[in-house]
C-alpha cells in the first residue's frame, strides 16, 4: 500500500520531530536555574506570579472569563484543579512541577507555566 513518495514524507516528519525535540530540550535547559516561579497568564497578560518554593499553605486562585478555572498552588507544584470548559484538557494535565511545564486552557485562554528564572533576588552571595 505504501508508495515511493511516502518515504519522503516520513523522512521530513522524522527530521521535524528530531529538530523539535532538540530545540525544546535546549530551550528548557537554558531557562533552568533550579528556582521555580509559576506564571498564570490570561489573554497574553500575566495575572499572577507565584514563587512555588515559597508556598507554605496551598493557594487557591479562581480565574473568570468565558469559563472558570480554579488553580491550586502548593509547595513546588501547581495545577488546574477544576474547570467548567468542555474539554478539561487543563485539568487532565495534572500537576506541574518542573521548569518548562505548562498547562493550557484554550477555551478560556489561560495558561500556567513554570519558569526557572527567579525575578527577585532572594539569595545574596559574597
Amino acid at each position: 500500500m505504501l508508495k515511493k513518495g511516502d518515504l519522503f514524507i516520513v523522512l521530513i516528519v522524522i527530521i521535524m520531530i528530531a529538530v523539535s525535540f532538540v530545540g525544546v530540550s535546549i530551550f528548557r535547559g537554558r531557562e533552568d536555574d533550579g528556582h521555580k516561579t509559576a506564571l498564570i497568564i490570561r489573554d497574553g497578560k500575566e495575572i499572577r506570579r507565584i514563587d512555588l518554593d515559597a508556598v507554605d499553605e496551598p493557594i487557591e486562585i479562581t480565574v473568570d472569563g468565558d469559563y472558570n478555572n480554579t488553580i491550586i498552588a502548593e509547595k513546588g507544584r501547581i495545577r488546574f484543579m477544576e474547570a467548567d470548559c468542555p474539554d478539561k484538557v487543563c485539568v487532565d494535565t495534572g500537576w506541574l512541577y518542573k521548569t518548562g511545564d505548562m498547562a493550557v486552557c484554550l477555551p478560556n485562554k489561560v495558561m500556567i507555566k513554570i519558569e526557572g528564572k527567579s525575578q527577585d533576588i532572594d539569595i545574596v552571595t559574597y
Binding site: 523539535s20 528548557r28 497574553g44 505548562m102 493550557v104 484554550l106 495558561m111
Partner: peptide
C-alpha cells in the same frame, strides 16, 4: 496566536 505566547511550541514534539 491566541495565547500570545510562543511557549506553546513546547507541545510541538
Amino acid at each position: 496566536f491566541f495565547m500570545q505566547d510562543l511557549a506553546v511550541a513546547f507541545f510541538l514534539p
